[in-house]
Design a protein around this nucleic acid. Sequence first.
DNA 1: CCTGCATGAGAAATCGCTTTCCCAAGGGGC
DNA 2: GCCCCTTGGGAAAGCGATTTCTCATGCAGG
Lengths: 335, 335
Amino acid sequence: MLVGDRIRLSDVARAAGVSLATASKALNGSGRMTAETRERVRQAAEAMGFRPNAMARALSSQRSFTVGLLTNDGYGRFSMPVMAGVAEALVDQGVSVFMCGIEDDAALGRLHVEAMLDKQVDGIICSGKRIDRRLPVDLSDLPVPVVYVFTDAPEGAVSLVSDDAQGAREAAEWLAGLGRRRLAHVTGPASFASARERARVFREVTGPDSTVLHGAWSEAWGHEAVARLWDGSAPPPDGLFCGNDQIARGAVDALRERGVAVPGDVSVVGFDNWEIVAAATRPPLTSIDMNLKDLGREAGRLMLALSEGRAVEPGVRRQPCRLVVRQSCGGGSAR
Amino acid sequence: MLVGDRIRLSDVARAAGVSLATASKALNGSGRMTAETRERVRQAAEAMGFRPNAMARALSSQRSFTVGLLTNDGYGRFSMPVMAGVAEALVDQGVSVFMCGIEDDAALGRLHVEAMLDKQVDGIICSGKRIDRRLPVDLSDLPVPVVYVFTDAPEGAVSLVSDDAQGAREAAEWLAGLGRRRLAHVTGPASFASARERARVFREVTGPDSTVLHGAWSEAWGHEAVARLWDGSAPPPDGLFCGNDQIARGAVDALRERGVAVPGDVSVVGFDNWEIVAAATRPPLTSIDMNLKDLGREAGRLMLALSEGRAVEPGVRRQPCRLVVRQSCGGGSAR
DNA sequence: CCTGCATGAGAAATCGCTTTCCCAAGGGGC
DNA sequence: GCCCCTTGGGAAAGCGATTTCTCATGCAGG
């Protein structure tokens, strides 16, 4: 793929018959020279397959064209799509991503952050698995910009989260639009801000005393919630909005077991659009996708802006979610 | 966390009353000087919170203390644990990891590899999601060492995979040890080398004409396989070894639906030990764990050796799998 | 008492590129 | 026709380490 020694800028300069300085400026679009000169250098570089040594460039320009991505999501459920998005936004700017999983280990976090700083990263993107908790590292007072994604961020920071309210509204209105009138929301612990926020909006759409059940983020809880809702003490729901796909799957399984048809008798919407769960459910789940890759992509863009010294409005940015229709709701494929 | 300008080596040297050269050697353990001098420099560095500039160090020493991790596993199912292992093995050597997901896009692969090379990585770890397929990039003739993990590798390369044969034997013998005598193996497509190898060993343990069913790697296939095995034409198995946890889950669900008790009537072992699937199954799955993090850790060690110029025996290294006992088999928690 | 060699430490070159002056030449204004 | 300003391009000083020599110094050997 690459043979022999790497071509240096000085080689290109010599070939193009210009000085080192001119060659550098030509390729970077800086400095002043005739278009003809610039082009000649470009051609030479191109022809020789010149690739600048990023280390040298970083050392003198004080920009390393690398960013660090810190995450405590060891599983990758959230951080993999975010990383993919970040990388996508940055790769053609020549920026690479150091990825560091730190779980919830503060010492490990510090270690990695220091390693990043030593490597002169142009910025750090900090991502989590929950928007109301922070990673066990203090990223304030760092000599580089920081962008927070899908995690809680300090006051005045640049941060990016998915729009729980809009996602929940999307789900509830979809169920309502299908003609479902007795809706219930089965979600995770009320200790999660996301769970509370989605529940709030769910009530906003369906009425202040519609049913909201908090529990674990598990299939088991989905099961149990169905058992409660169908205990005969009240007319059961005809639409279920679940806080994540695992709960939804548990619920759908429980409904099947008790002979309730999905989507015939009940429509179910999940949250997360976790392919592996949503697609394996019978029937496959209609679900809210948080567009994590988009979140990552936007984070990448913001990081880029910041590292180029462009000003970025601080504060929390909420990115919209998107309803992905499968078969657990019936109804058209409209939207 | 860090305040003001970074301390440079020259600052340390001045503070310790030695030259730049001596300071460098003192901190790197190279050169010759009295223990007292060395220690004095160390103390000064420590006291001033000196952190060497990795770029500068890389530029002159020709080692960047970074490695690239290439993967086509966009989901992170395999690459996240591998990355965690790699990072764990390298972090206290001060080595950071560039992570690049390239899916199956050859152009993207080339782009990322070139970016890595520009950044002077000390080596590249190439990881996949299937041991009999390669990534769409040519990593031969690179100016840096390459280690392959969980992917097919060219002749003569250094490569690391999990030991399918040992894992399969572990599973089959566990079932046999539980007194199960009519064993069946339900697994993925025979086009997968892993599926074939595990099936081979399964037969080696259970007899040449024991049942092996190939299908998709899905829950749906687990269902269907159970339907076939329990169609009444033959005495059904009392032990099921499934090719992955999804198949196992499908099978367990199907068994429950037809009133067959797990683990009462049938013991089921899965493969992958994918927590999210294995733990949510009712009952939770006993499964074979491929120890991917260990695989990554070992890959990190090999990479380190290679990048330090130490010789590494080429060839395929197989790392053992491990049986994780949950409740789908009954029997003791022995082992 | 002089030569020789091991030893501790420093001067300076280098790594490959960026960037800041600085200078020569050409052109326009008065 | 003189002067000043614009313009294209180059020389050289870093960036912050590593590393190769080189050089005093002190001690042992003859």
